[in-house]
């Protein structure tokens, strides 16, 4: 219900006589004038609301990516004043010429895929337990317990993994204690230590989507399947898993994208044989600026590849979902 405009104005005049801050503000002539100009038409009001966010999003969110694309296509950056700038795709071609470049690239993609899968296998039972076997009253508590370590930063948690897996680390100490080994196993600076670190850092991003997907699932579905004679494994495979594909898909997408972007963790936990593409890209920015275009081109290649993989994965998942509902 709205009052006619005249009634509104009349009430506005009453408010203006108020002694409160707001009353004084709406009675203040410059404020009233500015407001009348701003709200002269709904269209103008909307434009005033929209202009700042749109400019911010275009210049700050899209701008860096566009500029990176532009730099990747120039022959040299930054340009010395007076010299002409040429467009070229040689930096993209350089990627295919040297195994030193494309090997870390494919390593990154395959590592990220494997680590994402490991995270999924590790966190699915945890999410399942929380959503299906814990009383709702305790659920939040047990979930919060898992959230605490994830407030801690990337570097600190990477360091914690270094201490865990080092030659004189806790795992080797325990193994020696039980008598399984005589000499420490060199876990560190391998793809294994890197995997443990990255799974450790990304587990939460998988756990939360899985948990919310599982929580939405009504228990009656499982009971119905059990009544119809389905065993535990069949129930999981035919009921629970298909209905949580959406959670799996968003969790995997998130974890995959994050895993490809790690820089410090591979530097600290990996070795020479596990150089990832992030380190290759970073290499172009540590030295003099004339290698920026190559680094920018490689970053674009990496981003497009990561997007392609996740898009293909999501397509696969949605076709699985559709196939199941038939």
């Amino acid at each position: 219900m709205t009052f006619p405009a005249s009634a509104r104005e009349e009430r506005g005049a009453t408010a203006a006589r108020d002694r409160t801050f707001w009353g004084k503000l709406s009675g203040w002539a410059p404020y009233g004038a500015a407001l009348r100009v701003a709200t002269a038409s709904p269209r103008r009001q909307f434009l005033i609301l929209a202009i700042c966010p749109v400019i911010w999003v275009l210049t700050q969110h899209l701008g860096p990516m566009v500029q990176m694309l532009r730099v990747s296509l120039t022959d040299a950056y930054p340009v010395a004043p007076g010299t002409p700038q040429h467009f070229t795709i040689e930096h993209y071609l350089a990627f295919f010429h040297d195994p030193l470049f494309w090997q870390p690239f494919f390593r990154t993609l395959s590592f990220a895929g494997v680590f994402t899968f490991c995270t999924l296998v590790l966190t699915y039972p945890v999410a399942y337990f929380l959503a299906r076997h814990v009383r709702p009253k305790n659920r939040m508590l047990l979930l919060l317990l898992l959230l605490i370590p994830f407030w801690v930063g990337e570097i600190v948690r990477t360091y914690a993994i270094m201490i865990l897996l080092g030659n004189t680390g806790a795992v080797n100490l325990v193994l020696k204690w039980i008598g399984l080994i005589d000499r420490p196993i060199p876990f560190m600076y391998t793809s294994f230590s890197m995997g443990v670190g990255i799974v450790y850092l990304t587990a939460l991003y998988m756990l939360l989507p899985l948990y919310s997907a599982l929580e939405k699932l009504p228990a009656s579905l499982n009971e119905a399947a059990a009544d119809l004679g389905a065993g535990a494994w069949t129930r999981f495979r035919r009921v629970t898993l298909p209905l949580t594909l959406e959670g799996i898909s968003s969790g995997c997408t998130l974890v995959f994208l994050i895993s490809t972007g790690f820089y410090a963790t591979p530097v600290l936990l990996g070795g020479p044989s596990t150089t990832v593409f992030a380190e290759t890209i970073a290499g172009f920015f540590h030295v003099a600026g004339d290698q920026w275009p190559t680094g920018a081109a490689f970053a674009i290649i990496m981003f497009l590849a990561a997007l392609l993989v996740t898009a293909a994965f999501q397509k696969l998942m949605s076709s699985l979902r559709k196939g199941d509902s038939k």
């Binding site: 999003v57 275009l58 860096p64 994208l257 972007g261 790690f262 820089y263 970053a299 990496m302 981003f303």
Partner: peptide
Amino acid sequence: ILGMTILPALIPGIISAIAFRIYAR
């Protein structure tokens, strides 16, 4: 606009850092 708003959260860390480095210049 919504898509562009979310964009910075989806760009992998190293790529975002590089893009900011270039844009800062």
